[in-house]
């Protein structure tokens, strides 16, 4: 996989296309794995999309007592294997970003797998494909770095200078599978 997922929360218009599209993806069993939420509907209509960062060293897999969360060779963190998952929900508490979902009925965890059946052929995941506002994008690693640089410059213009320790807070989200 040569491309990464890239999120810009402010662009989100709250249409939830990504969630509808997530249900369409192969292996998703008509359940969406991503989130679109209001920051505070009382104050503003700002929403944000949220999905899995596909961590290199995923906390969810590390807290799973059944060793059910596997990582593909491309680096995609998959949903818990249905046969192994014992339904303890440790992953939902371990994940620092609150991503894995749990189905009490079927007693299993499910999560974003970056539409593995598409991205393994370098085809954009459903959520990024349909996102009408480009809040979710599936782009080249270089393009992502370029976008991040631009955003960092903007923050500098506004008088807030990121330091070495917190600069990740100043640039938009990017995640996904890429080689350094």
């Amino acid at each position: 996989m040569k491309k990464v997922m890239y999120l810009e929360f402010e662009r989100c218009i709250g249409c939830r296309s990504c969630q509808a599209a997530c249900r369409e993806c192969g292996g998703h069993d008509a359940k969406e794995r991503n989130y679109v939420e209001y920051i505070d509907f009382f104050e503003s209509r700002q929403t944000f999309p949220m999905m899995c960062m596909q961590c290199k060293d995923p906390a969810c897999a590390k807290v799973c007592p059944a060793n059910a969360i596997q990582i593909t060779e491309e680096g995609v963190v998959l949903s818990a294997m249905e046969e192994k998952c014992i339904g303890c929900r440790n992953c939902t508490f371990g994940c620092p970003f609150g991503i894995p979902k749990f189905d009490f009925e079927e007693n299993k965890m499910y999560k974003c797998d970056m539409c593995y059946d598409r991205t393994k052929y370098d085809i954009s995941p459903m959520c990024a494909s349909v996102c009408p506002s480009d809040a979710i994008r599936f782009i080249d690693h270089d393009e992502m770095m370029e976008l991040r640089r631009r955003r960092t410059q903007m923050n500098l213009i506004e008088g807030k200078k990121p330091s070495e320790n917190d600069k990740w807070q100043y640039v938009p989200e990017f995640f996904g599978v890429y080689s350094d």
Binding site: F9, E10, Y35, E37, I39, D40, E43, S44, Q46, F48, M50, T92, F93, C95, P96, F97, G98, I99, P100, N155, K160, Q169, Y170, P172, E173
Partner: peptide, 30 residues
């Protein structure tokens, strides 16, 4: 924090805003 709050914490830090759970009583200004 519950998963929903964790998602919000992540977004707020990305949007360069304080976490929604601080002592600040200001409204969320996006």
């Amino acid at each position: 924090y519950c998963p929903a709050c964790r998602r919000k914490i992540r977004v707020m830090s990305q949007l360069n805003m304080k976490t929604p759970f601080g002592t600040s009583a200001e409204p969320v200004q996006t």
